[in-house]
């Protein structure tokens, strides 16, 4: 566990020592901020609805951008050899990198708390959906960072890793948007596979184990495949 935290700490300081984290988090705040302001000030409604409805899509784009360097960069520079010939397990390497990636995205989400807080000062805010919404966003972020790390183990090129993760994320996000065109039985399956569908459930303020199970299995499967890819590099 302590080695996992050591790796996580190194990755977090690597993020904030380079402009990368600031650019990605900044762009995320800019767009999510526009979503918020456009409803509150342009439409004049004290609601976070459009913020919560579109932020999962933002995460589909920004989480891979955060995660892409985590393993690719070590493959490119050769430091993976340095790291994995020290007494550390592949699982610890992946877990540490996951925690670092999640921390960066979570720090971005943390800053958006300014939106509900600002609404709460001027009007009545129903905190239930807000808490649910943030929990849902955090779960989305975790699963998407997991996918990003998995893609990052597949290529020494960060851009390739980013595009692969983005495509997987987009497909998962689109699943429940296409149910209209497919038979109902298949539609149910697609809905269950959709990242956005489960988010909306949680964002309603209803915490169902099925939704939690979805995100946790998505995360565990991606991290497991990432460890596997790391191991295959030894073969």
């Amino acid at each position: 566990m302590s080695k996992t935290l050591t790796i996580a700490r190194r990755e977090i300081s690597a993020y904030f020592n380079s402009p990368m984290a600031y650019i990605v988090v900044g762009a995320f705040l800019l767009i999510s901020g526009y979503l918020y302001f456009s409803t509150v000030f342009l439409a004049g409604t004290a609601s976070l609805r459009s913020f919560f409805s579109l932020t999962p899509l933002l995460l589909v784009i920004f989480a891979p951008a955060v995660a892409m360097r985590l393993v690719s960069e070590e493959l490119r520079s050769g430091t993976l050899e340095l790291l994995t010939t020290m007494p550390v397990r592949d699982e610890e390497v992946i877990a540490g990198k996951f925690l670092a990636g999640l921390s960066v995205v979570a720090s971005g989400l943390l800053m958006t708390l300014a939106y509900p807080l600002s609404i709460a000062t001027v009007g009545d805010l129903d905190w239930g959906p807000v808490i649910g919404g943030y929990l849902g966003l955090l779960l989305c972020a975790a699963a998407l960072i997991g996918i990003g790390i998995m893609a990052s183990t597949w290529s020494r090129n960060q851009i390739t890793a980013f595009i692969l993760a983005l495509m997987i994320g987009l497909v998962l996000w689109l699943f429940d948007k296409v149910t209209f065109f497919v038979p109902a039985s298949l539609g149910r399956v697609l809905e269950y596979l959709s990242i956005d569908f489960h988010f909306r459930n949680i964002a309603r303020g209803v915490i169902d184990t099925r939704d939690l199970l979805y995100y946790f299995s998505l995360l565990l499967i991606s991290l497991f495949l990432a460890v596997l890819a790391l191991r295959r590099r030894h073969a």
Binding site: S13, S77, G78, T79, E81, L82, P87
Partner: peptide
């Protein structure tokens, strides 16, 4: 691995540290 010290070819190091 605990008993080995290893310097890979070209000494790959974390350049950002």
């Amino acid at each position: 691995r605990a008993h080995i010290g290893y310097l890979p070819e070209n000494a790959p190091l974390y350049e950002d540290m």
